[in-house]
Amino acid sequence: MRDYLIECRELYKSYGLRPALRGVNLDIGPGRIVGLLGPNGSGKTTLIKLLCGLLQPTRGTLAVDGQAIGPYTKSVVSYLPDRMYFADWMKATDLFDLFRDFYADFDYEKAIAMCQSLGVEPRDRLKSMSKGTKEKVQLVLVMARSAKLYLLDEPIAGVDPAARDFILRTILTNYNEEGTVLISTHLISDVEKVLDEAIFLKEGKISLHETVDNIREKEGKSVDALFREIFRAEPMEGGAF
């Protein structure tokens, strides 16, 4: 087994002239839950999209499970995007069929069972579902896979606190324990209990990568408190790093 599931070296990404990532070096091992934390616009979504191949880096290299991004890495990555990505005329079961066709690690029965526990009727058309229900379907699609890497982009951003707990519990009870879960969020107090490691992303660079227990032990404060401190410290900081 290799040491690292994700390896990034000097990763740069800019949109036109606007830099989003500015030299990210990152190693993440298997079998852990990692929080990708940062304010809006710090590059969280960009990093996740690079990892799942929706964006190409401007410079630098990245590998998932030792391979450059391609069909192999896509077959072991389960990605929850920050938006709806399916055609409305489909039923949830149509999507399950599609996932079963393309991903060898998709568990159809598990998906149906998850739907039942989440109160989703899998034979309903997506068009007739509420936004929250569609999000649940998308979560089911992602968590019914036994992937090596789960990339969850803001899974709890748009929902009320009660549903947040529910979603986190669904993730906790369903992810493949040999795999790694990378959760991007700015709602730190809600997720910090489930994390092994925290990565602070600040203006396109990693400013901290540490286990959460170490943070609490060393700093004597919660990850949330440390986050607020770091990101409040220099409110007027400009582009010069």
Binding site: D165, E177, K193
Partner: peptide, 14 residues
């Protein structure tokens, strides 16, 4: 472990 972790809302490793 997994059951307890889910109940407490924490990571199974923890």
């Amino acid at each position: 472990v997994r059951e307890l972790a889910a109940e407490a809302g924490v990571n199974p490793n923890t």
